[in-house]
Amino acid sequence: MSADFWAGYISGAVGILIGNPLDLIKVRLQARDSISTQTVTSYARQFESKSALVAGTAAPILGYGALNALLFVSYNRSEAAINTALNCQANLWTTWFAGAIGGLATWAVSTPTELIKCRAQLSSPPASSWNIAKQVFKTEGIRGLYVGGVVTALRDSIGYGFYFWSYELSSKWIESSRKNTSDFSQEAAKVLLCGGLAGIVTWVSIFPLDVIKTRVQEQVPGATKTPLLGSSVLAQRRLGAMDIARAAYREEGARVFFRGLTVCSVRAFIVNAVQWAVYEWIMLELGQGRHKRLEPI
């Protein structure tokens, strides 16, 4: 396996462990049955045990580690191929397109991982990721694991385009504004800051799509009532992404598509700062230090 595969896998798994508690709150705020008067604090009080803080982490640790590995490998190879095909040096446009291709390549892993994670985080009483996966596969087959696949693919492609684009842009901005001399502490601070900013930019760019994805994937068709959050909403048929979006806007207005963005932004900064730091460190340790290739726009 290549260095960027292992660096991506390990950094992705570390990010899930760090960010899961805030991700759980974010998903519950996005879900259709969230009561508007409930706040982040009221959701945090639902964590009655340490196990609640890691609800739904099994699938993401395995799945997101693989997803992150696939993402970085696809991104690095795509960027090299694009630059070769266009006979040009790397720039922010090719970086965005390579990131979008990398995000799209993660679809096969991302969709079932996200579906299992969402349902595990919203289940009441709590259910393990493994039990959720077995139940979905038993009742709906492999197709059931790919519910919401189109909106997930769109979210990941756009989001990861901005992910790498914003990381490179902020890296270049910091490098151009500081002195030529640099030491380890400066480099570490740069990676942490740029990684955190990239996380925020990414989620701001695709948050409405993520809200729709969550509401599509939380649906359990054929049940008299969905077990998610103890909802009494009938789930006799599954609604598509456009139906979900129209219904959400009609019932709660445009702000529903940004519910949970503050929590998500805090989580995104912390998680992606650590993820990029771990990725860059592992690449350096494996003798594959990341070389900056971007030229000024």
Rank of each mutant, 00 (worst) to 15 (best):
R77P: 05
I16M: 10
L53Q: 05
A100E: 05
P125I: 09
I18Q: 03
N20G: 01
Q46S: 13
I35P: 00
L104T: 01
C118N: 09
N76P: 00
L22E: 00
T57K: 01
Y64D: 06
S36N: 07
G8L: 06
G56T: 06
R28W: 08
I10T: 07
R119K: 15
T111H: 02
R28C: 08
W107E: 02
G102Q: 13
D4A: 10
W93S: 06
T37L: 07
Y43L: 13
Q30I: 08
E79H: 15
R119W: 06
Y75L: 11
Y43G: 00
D23L: 15
K117R: 12
A58H: 10
T106M: 03
V109T: 04
Q89Y: 03
L122V: 03
E79K: 15
L62S: 09
Q46F: 02
A55V: 02
K26I: 02
W6K: 05
E48S: 08
N83L: 15
Q89C: 02
I116M: 04
T113W: 07
A52R: 07
L92Y: 14
L67G: 01
A69R: 01
I25E: 01
I25A: 03
N83F: 15
V27Y: 14
V54E: 11
T39A: 04
G19H: 06
A7M: 04
N20S: 14
A90K: 07
A100W: 07
S11N: 11
R32L: 11
T95H: 09
A120R: 05
W93V: 13
L70D: 00
Q46P: 00
D33H: 13
P21S: 10
V73H: 09
D33F: 09
F5A: 02
Y64G: 01
W107M: 04
T95F: 04
A98D: 07
G15N: 11
A55N: 09
E79S: 15
Y75N: 11
A98S: 14
A52H: 11
I16L: 15
A31Y: 06
K117H: 13
T106E: 03
A69I: 08
Q89M: 02
I18V: 15
F72R: 12
T111M: 10
P21L: 13
I61S: 02
L53N: 02
L67Q: 10
A105E: 02
N68K: 10
